[in-house]
């Protein structure tokens, strides 16, 4: 059992005195699929930024894939993100005018792989998210759900230790949203560790573990035992 994320007493205060996170403890083990759920302004995105090393806490410690984030320079943090973390955003952030395949390959640009290999892996990742027939479509030629699947392919193409998704269904209709959530379940079934941020209790309830936060504090950390996807047991390490 390996710990992917280890947060101890993490506090984040923004300049101006807003304490977005107040003493958060969070452990995520390899292979988990969890929801970070809470109302608007509760600190979910802030938590995702700190877990994803895009921002540093004002107090407390963050360890990612065994690395103590506080000890790493900005350069090494970049390398850590390139190798160990994949991000999915509510608004996709695809590069306009560039084919789906090249958008996915961009996810490997900072990995040091050769261009041909990046493109080869991008094709495989696109097939994995069910868009094998949309390789050469550009973002404006894809539906919202398809765009988010391209973004997910970009996030997983480097096989990160942790996939962080901030409101991945926030910009989608319910059918596309369900398809995206199904894809995340499938990827988790293949072994990916995934944290999904959402304010939607329904989406959170369908995941094996829910971390509820309110006013910058974890108020509940629970496991839902059902329904388990076929093909094995999903680990759950809720602290409650």
């Amino acid at each position: 059992m390996t710990t992917v994320v280890e947060l101890n007493q993490v506090t984040k205060e923004y300049p101006g005195g807003v304490a977005a996170l107040r003493g958060v403890d969070l452990h995520i083990e390899r292979g988990e699929l969890l929801a970070i759920v809470g109302p608007s302004g509760s600190g979910k995105s802030t938590l995702l930024h700190i877990v994803g090393t895009l921002d540093r806490p004002t107090a407390g410690t963050v360890a990612l894939a065994g690395h103590d984030v506080a000890a790493l320079s900005d350069r090494r943090l970049s390398a850590l993100r390139a190798r160990h973390i994949g991000f999915v955003f509510q608004s996709f952030h695809l590069v306009a005018g560039v084919s789906a395949r090249d958008n996915v390959a961009e996810g490997l640009l900072y990995s040091g792989l050769a261009r041909a290999e990046r493109r080869r892996r991008a094709a495989t990742a696109l097939e994995r998210v069910g868009l094998g027939d949309r390789m050469h479509h550009r973002p404006h030629e894809l539906s919202g759900g398809q765009r988010q699947r391209v973004a997910i392919a970009r996030a997983v193409v480097g096989e990160p230790d942790l996939l962080l998704a901030d409101e991945p269904t926030g910009a989608l209709d319910s059918a596309s949203g369900e398809a995206v959530m199904q894809l995340l379940h499938d990827l988790n079934g293949d072994g990916a560790t995934i944290a999904v941020i959402t304010h939607d209790g329904g989406i959170a309830g369908a995941l094996p573990r829910q971390v509820r936060i309110r006013d910058g504090q974890v108020v509940e950390d629970t496991c839902t035992r059902a329904p388990l996807p076929a093909g094995g047991e999903v680990p759950c390490h809720a602290t409650d």
């Binding site: 970049s78 390398a79 190798r83 608004s91």
Partner: peptide
């Protein structure tokens, strides 16, 4: 801005 943020999240260093 968004592209810059995206690239940073993908692992681009400041130098890159």
């Amino acid at each position: 801005r968004h592209e810059i943020g995206l690239r940073r999240s993908l692992g681009a260093t400041r130098g890159q």
